[in-house]
Design a binder for these strands. Structure first.
Length: 882
RNA sequence: GCCGGAGUGGCGGAAUUGGUAGACGCAAGGGACUUAAAAUCCCUCGCAGCUUAGCUGUGUACGAGUUCGAGUCUCGUCUCCGGCACCA
């Protein structure tokens, strides 16, 4: 007795084998979910005899309930996981919870419930929801980032980074959300607003912990070349975010002061065109240079305002080291302190911002670059000063008015000028990145405590490894009035210094939750209760190295920069710690599109839920509703569909099928209630076909167990249905393999089902073909709609789980059509189609086409210039015009 | 502004990579079954015209081009969506 049969017997799952007429999804979905759990169908262990496949979907934040975005994400992942399993891979398919975060704390403030309680209750509920979807997770590997067993390792990473000098503390201006009373990363600020609550973000100076991601900037950039399995646009966004630019740092001596002004430029070829210098308002030298305090405050206030250029002449001059010219020094609001040196050389002729500034303040504009082919326009003035320009010339070209470098092309000149500068000690070549170090401090409770203490005597002391985890205290009040709640906790705050034993205070900030999600994918490899990264260092039997990298990662495009970049950074840190032996965590990435729906708005009641609209009128006031555009489903617009309601009404299989059928995974999906009905109809139709022939199919299925008889039989009796089945296997397999185009795969299955429902098996070979077609339809449908496939599989007399059965293979010969439609064109225009035997030679095709009466008539009296044949498809006869 | 991506029926979307445009689904219209409705099944379905068993034009945002042949390739224009945005 097989393992499955045993389980069946015990659990009684297959004891009642009488098929019902009606498709009762509620009954069968529950039945199979229980069955799969019982036999631990989805449990995975490392198995050297099979090729591994790590299928991972981005884990959710346990906000309370799953939404359609999750449904789509996890349906896609589940199809891939189940398909790969049937293809013989040993598939790792885990799920967990990105469980730290602000909503839990907000709930605590609002409702007085502890974040832990709130979070774990949400996890319980959402886990049930995921199970109701029939997802094939190995729950034995579930992780929750808010558990001390997990966040201990965040703290461990922190200590390792601190040891390596890759974690440090500095005072810095941070993006501060007054509403969330916390710090935000640059990436969390969108259009000057908080990504979560849309409040305007202000600048505030705080002591912050940073991870030195810039240490890996170049490597993270180079690594982009290897991300062949990622969507190009995501790779591009990563590259842009890192933002490498090559140039030179040049020292401009300040006239009459024993001081240099260091600037960075990517255009050393324009150095002869410098007519002023600009400093950022926060540049360390500004305080010493300015006289007009009042005006300075104005400029400072306009820092970061994009629309206005505001400057202040300091009265000081710098010396251009190449020309010895005296250059006026300004303070300007548009110069950023955070990039380069915080000071720039300004070349108004060749930089639009400088140009606008120069016009405003009456500064000369000196042209030093001309287009390479500038013979047609007027020659530049000898002094290079240009009054007539209307905009800067920012392209590269040929140098003029540039001393010994005049006449050179920009590219050559850049190299030569950099060398000239370096040789004379005026500066040096320099590479800058836009990428900033990662500020990880958050003034919040519900996150990983940062494991350091502050001792009056010893200063910053890290918590010894043996004392990890530093656990979040329970005695915390959630008032919502600013600052870190941990600072209020008596038990937590006071601590003995690990070094001197004296009085010390704990760090009260917690870590950005992006730390949690930067390594969770390796935690799954180790399993729920055995996360121990330290023992993974140089471990020859490493489970992590066995399963990683992730073969297919699936998630939303919103993580194109943040999460993915941090994960790539952490993977390199883990590599340098000896935990992993690779650099890129995600081999292939699929970014699924958003789930969208039209919006409804009532003149009186504002946004309406779909169920609040009846016949285009508001159910509350009967006013006509305004139909808005199709937008991403969001609670604020109320254009949402509740997965629970959908499962209740149509079942998980229908919900999965529709969300996979309506659009290819990477594209946005527009929700359609009618479309869902279509998916439901399809499943009902299939149910009806199997029900109608259930008795014959059972007999067939048993007979077909004698494989040899079966195969030789169908080979001797090819039929249209058999051919269609083989063609469908080919199409579905190709569609899944080629970029996971599930929508067309499902369309092919619908076609086959249409053929099945029209088919009336009469002769014995018909019944064989029919049985074969049904079996394969179910096998191919099973990753998409697992419950109904498993149920019908049982109904046709199969004894084992359908997911134990390998994915079907097609036979090229049997898939081949006997007759093909030959398109006949005359001068590229379709004139007729004729049915011809497959494999017709080109000459025969030509002859057949020319002999066709209609074509013959058209050719009458004209000269055939040539005939193009596309084998088995088309004949194009090119004739002379009349 | 810069960098990407996209534009195909009433709608969601197909089209073997240069070879029948509109697969599959939805909606719509007609019919069958039914006392009736729902469900189900069958038929029609890009647009226009005609001498209407059919035929002829025309059609993949717009305009050119390459080719025997273009939704697909090239150039130009427009529109929409995303990312970055004073990065020197």
């Amino acid at each position: 007795m097989s393992r499955f049969e045993e389980c069946n017997e015990q659990a009684g799952f297959r004891s009642c084998n009488i098929m019902k007429e009606k498709y009762n999804f509620k009954e069968i979905e529950l039945k199979w979910q229980r069955y799969w759990a019982e036999i631990k169908l989805h449990k995975t262990d490392a198995d050297a005899s099979k090729e591994k496949f790590y299928c991972l979907e981005m884990f959710p934040y346990p906000s309370g309930k799953i939404h359609m975005g999750h449904v789509r994400n996890y349906a896609i992942g589940d199809v891939i996981a189940r398909y790969k399993k049937m293809r013989g891979f040993n598939v790792l398919h885990p799920m967990g919870w990105d469980a730290f975060g602000m909503p839990a704390e907000n709930a605590a403030i609002k409702h007085g419930v502890h974040p832990a309680k709130w979070t774990y209750e949400n996890i319980d509920y959402m886990k049930k929801q995921l199970d109701c979807m029939g997802l094939s997770y190995d729950w034995d590997r579930e992780v929750s980032t808010c558990s001390p067993e997990y966040y201990k390792w965040n703290q461990w990473f922190f200590l390792k980074l601190l040891e390596k000098g890759l974690a440090y503390k500095k005072a810095s201006f941070v993006n501060w959300c007054p509403s969330c009373t916390t710090v935000l990363a640059n990436e969390q600020v969108i259009d000057d607003k908080c990504w979560r609550c849309d409040t305007i973000v202000i600048q505030k100076e705080l002591e912050q912990w940073f991870f030195m991601i810039t240490h890996y900037a170049e490597e993270l950039l180079q690594g982009c070349d290897e991300l062949n399995g990622w969507p190009e646009r995501v790779v591009l966004m990563q590259r842009n975010w890192i933002g490498k630019s090559e140039g030179v740092e040049v020292d401009f001596p300040l006239d009459g002061m024993n001081e240099n002004l260091k600037i960075f430029t990517t255009r050393p070829d324009t150095l002869f065109g410098v007519t002023f210098m600009c400093l950022a308002p926060k540049h360390p030298l500004t305080e010493r240079l300015i006289h007009d305090k009042e005006k300075f405050e104005l400029v400072k206030a306009k820092y970061g305002k994009m629309d206005e250029k505001e400057g202040l002449f300091t009265g000081h001059y710098a010396i251009n080291p190449l020309t010895d010219e005296r250059i006026p020094v300004y303070i300007a609001n548009f110069v950023l302190m955070g990039y380069g040196t915080g000071a720039i050389m300004s070349v108004p002729a060749h930089d639009q911002r400088d140009f606008e500034f120069a016009k405003e303040y009456g500064i000369p504009i000196k042209v030093v670059i001309v287009p390479e082919n500038r013979s047609q326009s007027a020659p530049p003035r000898a002094d290079g000063l240009e009054a007539e320009m209307t905009e800067a010339f920012e392209d590269e070209g040929v140098l003029i008015n540039s001393g010994q470098f005049s006449g050179l092309k920009s590219s050559e000149a850049k190299a030569k000028i950099i060398k000239y500068i370096e040789d004379r000690g005026m500066g040096k070549g320099q590479i800058n990145y836009k990428l900033r170090d990662w500020g990880i401090s958050r003034q919040r409770y519900w996150g990983t405590p940062i494991p350091v203490v502050y001792c009056k005597k010893c200063g910053i002391v890290s918590v010894p490894e043996k004392d990890l985890p530093v656990i979040l205290p329970e005695d915390v009040k959630f008032t919502g009035t600013g600052g870190s709640p941990l600072a209020e906790s008596g038990v937590f705050l006071k601590v003995k210094c690990p070094e001197c034993g004296g009085e010390a205070m704990r760090e009260t900030d917690t870590m950005d939750t992006f730390v949690d999600s930067s390594w969770y994918f390796v935690a799954y490899c180790l399993g729920k209760d055995s996360i121990n990264l330290k023992s993974e260092i140089k471990n020859p039997q490493s489970e992590i190295n066995h399963w990683m990298p992730v073969d297919q990662y699936i998630g939303g495009i919103e993580h194109a920069v943040l999460h993915l970049l941090y994960s790539r950074f952490f993977t390199r840190v883990m590599r340098d710690l000896g935990i992993v032996d690779f650099s890129e965590p995600f081999e292939n990435l699929l970014t699924q599109g958003m789930v969208c729906k039209e919006t409804f708005r009532c003149p009186e009641h504002d946004w309406l839920f779909p169920e609040e609209v009846k016949n285009s009128r508001c159910v509350h006031c009967s006013k006509e509703v305004e139909k808005g555009r199709v937008e991403k489903m969001s609670k604020s617009r109320k254009n949402v569909i509740d997965p629970d309601a959908l499962i209740n009404r149509y079942g998980a299989d229908t919900m999965r099928l529709f969300s996979l059928f309506a659009a290819p995974p990477e594209r946005d999906l527009e929700w359609s209630d009618k479309g869902v009905e279509g998916a439901y109809r399809f499943l009902n139709k299939l149910w009806g076909i199997v029900y109608k022939y259930r008795n014959e199919l059972c007999v067939m299925s048993n007979e077909s167990k004698q494989n040899i008889v079966y195969t030789s039989f169908i080979t001797r009796h090819p039929s249209q249905l058999l051919r269609k089945t083989h063609q469908t296997i080919k199409r579905v397999t190709d569609d899944i393999e080629k970029d996971y185009h599930f929508n067309t795969a499902i369309a092919a299955l619908m076609e086959l089902a249409n053929e099945l429902s029209a088919f009336v098996p009469e002769k014995e070979e018909d019944r064989f073909a029919f049985s074969f077609a049904i079996k394969n339809t179910l096998l191919m449908l099973s990753p998409f709609a697992p419950h109904i496939s498993e149920e019908l599989w049982q109904a046709i007399g199969e004894k084992n789980s359908i997911f134990e059965h390998p994915w079907p293979v097609w036979d090229e010969v049997l898939a081949r059509d006997e007759e093909v439609e030959l398109v006949v064109q005359v001068n590229g225009k379709l004139r007729t189609k004729i049915l011809v035997p497959a494999g017709l030679s080109d000459d025969d095709a030509k002859e057949t086409a020319v002999r066709e009466p209609k074509i013959k008539e058209m050719l009458n009296g004209r000269q055939i210039k040539k005939i193009v044949v596309v084998k088995g498809r088309l004949v194009n006869i090119v004739i002379s015009e009349r």
